[in-house]
Design a protein around this nucleic acid. Structure first.
Length: 129
RNA sequence: GCGGAUGGCCGGACGGCCGCGAAGGCGACUUCGAGGAAAGUCCGGACUCCAGGGAGAAAUGGCGGCGGGUAACGCCCGCCCGGGGCAACCCGAGGGAAAGCGCCACAGAAAUCAGACCGCCCGCGGCUCCGGUCGCGGGCAAGGGUGAAACGGUGGGGUAAGAGCCCACCGCGCUGCCGGCAACGGGAGCGGCACGGCAAGCCCCGCCAGGAGCAAGGCCAAAUAGGGAUCGCGCGGGGCUCCGGCCCCAGGGCCUCUCCCGCCCGAGCGGUCCGGGUUGGCUGCUCGAGCCUGCCGGCGACGGCAGGCCCAGACGAAUGGCCGUCGGCGCCCUGCAAAGGGCGUCACAGAAUCCGGCUUACAGGCCAUCCGCGCGC
């Protein structure tokens, strides 16, 4: 998954966050809550890889046992694959955070709509800064 | 048919579109990709590193009927004993209480080499309505009552009343006999009853066990200094010499202790602490006490042989997302019924070095064997 993203959208390939420091940096930047999940977004600074969209997923113990956490992560991954290549911005890191119950139960189309709205909101916050 | 006991199995199926991980291929692409518990991390191992090897001891922890299976086990199988059930079958930390210490509450007269409350019997005396009753002395422990448990139980003889006082059976102890590999079982003789429970209290006996864990460990690349503090022991002797050293002996060090062996140091060695570093990649990493089928041995756990098969290896962590058809279950509707339709629902749970077990969780369903009762033949 780290390797090739065979789904290049207008903003370039999507790759995955793997380092703890990158997650912490995203958490300090912009965020937007939604019923099915919460979104954190951060434009990468100078000195970091400038190309492509990167995304990470977080489901804490609060989401449930291992089965529930895996399911929530997989649905978020499917949503990200659907939306990010078109709506995400190159040079940004995004982190999707799962919620107990809702992430697994909410309708898939609604989750996609949530992500589009959350992306617009985060990008607007960055522009206003 | 109803009720029950035991053992085992499955735990959704098929397809479409878009994806993920691994292996192979120049490529198009092909193949493979979660569980019975992957879980809890409770036991047992393999593997790796650390401690120099062996023997013994101590400490600590674990195990505990007997025999067998296994790499091993606290697991499994068979059997024995005790308890429960009409039965199939189930349950049992099931060694030692005449090595010692300790504890047995409450109740009760008395709780361990105990005791006489009510009571039973005899004698004497008083009273008497002649049935008894009271007092004193003596004998006794059958009956009542307490308790988890009362110097063994039941029955008979015996006696003033009683008592293993005597007898039979049972129990207990001792001795030898027979059956069994053994746990143990059977019957015989003797004793005349004396030796209560708790060892998931200490303890004793037998057996087992070094420590840490795949974030083990190894390689590469960066990075770092070949540091500092402190403590213990010791800073001796002899020989050879080409003057660089070499050899021998004291002495010191190396598993908690002792002994033996071995190794190292021999003017340093060893212990502890501080400082520095603790990231990235590769490897370990999946062919194994492996799985399937058949035959043979065994009551069985299991073992042997032959043939076939390759069956996840991720690391912010793949095995998915969205649909369709079918199926199971529940409810409702139509219908005499067969059947049809609608809605809802489909558990517990996700590999992380790998095996063998145990334990716990689990919607729904299936199979086999056995027992009891009822009915039919």
């Amino acid at each position: 998954m780290r390797a090739a993203a065979p789904h290049p959208g207008p903003e370039g390939p999507v790759s995955v966050l793997t380092r703890r420091a990158e997650f912490l940096a995203a958490a300090r930047a912009f965020r937007q809550g939604k019923p099915g999940f919460a979104l954190q977004g951060r434009p990468r600074g100078p000195g970091e890889a400038p190309e492509g969209i990167r995304v990470g997923f977080t489901c804490s113990r609060k989401v449930g046992n291992a089965v529930a956490r895996n399911r929530a992560k997989r649905r978020l991954r499917a949503v990200a694959r659907e939306v990010l290549p078109g709506e995400g911005r190159a040079g940004w890191d995004y982190v999707l955070i799962g919620r107990p119950g809702e992430t697994a139960a909410r309708d898939f189309a609604a989750l996609c709509a949530d992500l589009r709205a959350a992306l617009a909101s985060v990008h607007a916050k960055a522009a206003a800064r």
